[in-house]
Nucleic acid binder design. Structure first.
Lengths: 210, 210
DNA sequence: TAGATTGTTAATCGATTAACAATC
DNA sequence: TAGATTGTTAATCGATTAACAATC
C-alpha cells in the first residue's frame, strides 16, 4: 500500500498535528502557514513541511494549508476514517478505565468485547458490554471482525495471550502489560509501559534538581 | 548535578534495561555480557555499551557486567532509590486505576493524596486515600513534600491546574490530559497521550495491511 | 505582477553502529 | 599468559534544519 516506508519519528508526530488542527478548525481558522503552526506548536516550520510532504503536497504556495483539508487528510493517514473493532483483555481497573473513556469511540475505535480470566467478574457489565471468560475469545474474535486487541492483564499471562490472539487472526495489539510480546513482525504492537514513563520522569526530575 | 546532558533517547531505554536486568536477577543470573544482553533484548551490543558508558564504567573487560550491580546502578540513575510523593488530580476511572496499581509504590512512587473537582466524589476512599476537593490542594502539596503531580483530568482544565500546581511548588507532572501543558522549562513533564498512541497503532495497522 | 509560502534539495546535526585498542 | 569483553574512538546512517527555487 505504501510507496516508501515513513519513519516512526514522523508518524509519532502526526497525532499531535491532528490535535492542533482540530483545535484550529474548532476555532474557525481557515488557513495556516507552516510558520504560524510552528509558532503555536513549538516545532520548526521546516519539520512541519517535511513531515507533511512525506504524504504528498497538502499546501499551496503563497497561501499555506487549508485547516479543514489538512485535518481530514491527516485523519485519513492515521486510519481514523475507518472503524476499528477492539476487544480488551483484562477487566481490571485499567481495562475498565479504557472502556469508559469515550474519546476512543469518537475516533472510530469501538470496544466490542471484554474478556477476563477471573470467573468472579465474568457477567459483569462495563458500559453495556458484558465481561466474558477467556474461552469465548477465539469465537468472538473470528465472528466479530476484531482487528485490535488491548492487553490490560498482568505481565505473567501477556506473552501467551498475545500469541493466542495472533493465532485467532488479530492484526494489532495495544499492549499495556509490562513485558515485550513475542509476535510475528507483521503484527503491529504499540506498547504503553506506564512504569517506564514514570521512571523517565523520575530521572529527569533527579537530573534537573539542583 | 549532571556533568553532560544525556540524550532522551538514552533515558528512554533505561527502564527497559532495568526491567530485563531485574528479570535476570530473579533468575539468579550473576553476570551478562553486552552480547548476551543484545541477544535477548534485540538491540545492538554496541548500543548497550554506549548507553551504559554515558554513566561511567559499569562493566569489566573480559567479564561483562554484574547483573545485580548493574540493576542497582540503573535504579539509582532512574531515581528509584528515593521515595517520591505523588498526588493525583482527577479521581475518574483512569485516576483510580493508577492509584490501584501497586507496582508504582513498589518502586518508591507513593500516592499521598487524591483531588477532584466534583464534590460528589470527595470523601470517597480509594485504597485508604480520601478524595479531597481542589481547594485543599495548595496546603496539601506544601505540607506533604509532594514532588510529582499526576494529571488525570479532562483537557479543558489541565493547563490551568498545571499552572496552579507549579505555583504550589510541584517539580514534575505526569500528564494524562490530552493537551500540551504550559509550564516553565525547569518543571519536568512526561506526557502519556493514550489516544496518540492508539492513532499510531492505527496508522501502522493501515500501512502494513495488504 | 509582487509577495508569500510551499515543496524540495542541500547542509548540519545527532544518534547508531562498527571497529579496535585497552585491560581484566 | 591467552581469551574475552569492555570502553571508546571513528564511520555510518538517519533525522532535523536551513536555504532557495518553484509557483500560487
Amino acid at each position: 500500500m505504501e510507496e516508501k516506508e515513513i519513519s516512526q519519528a514522523v508518524i509519532s508526530r502526526l497525532p499531535r498535528y491532528f490535535r492542533y488542527l482540530g483545535d484550529l478548525k474548532d476555532e474557525g481558522i481557515e488557513r495556516i502557514s507552516s510558520q504560524e503552526l510552528s509558532d503555536i506548536m513549538k516545532v520548526t516550520a521546516s519539520q512541519i513541511r517535511q513531515d507533511f510532504n512525506n504524504f504528498g503536497g497538502f499546501g499551496q504556495q503563497g497561501y499555506g494549508y487549508n485547516v479543514v483539508y489538512l485535518y481530514e487528510e491527516i485523519g485519513k493517514i492515521l486510519g481514523l476514517d475507518k472503524e476499528h473493532n477492539l476487544i480488551i483483555i483484562g477487566a481490571g481497573h485499567l481495562g475498565q478505565a479504557l472502556v469508559n473513556y469515550m474519546n476512543f469511540e469518537r475516533r472510530g475505535f469501538i470496544f466490542r468485547g471484554i474478556f477476563d480470566s477471573n470467573p468472579a467478574i465474568c457477567g459483569m457489565k462495563i458500559r453495556e458490554i458484558e465481561v466474558q471468560p477467556m474461552e469465548k475469545m477465539e469465537t468472538f474474535v473470528k465472528e466479530n471482525n476484531i482487528d485490535i486487541a488491548v492487553l490490560t492483564i498482568p505481565k505473567s499471562g501477556a506473552v501467551a495471550v498475545a500469541e493466542q490472539l495472533v493465532s485467532y487472526g488479530i492484526k494489532a495489539i495495544w499492549n499495556f502489560a509490562h513485558v515485550d510480546l513475542n509476535v510475528p513482525k507483521e503484527i503491529q504492537v504499540e506498547n504503553v509501559h506506564l512504569s517506564d514513563s514514570l521512571m523517565k520522569l523520575s530521572y529527569n526530575l533527579a537530573s534537573h534538581d539542583n
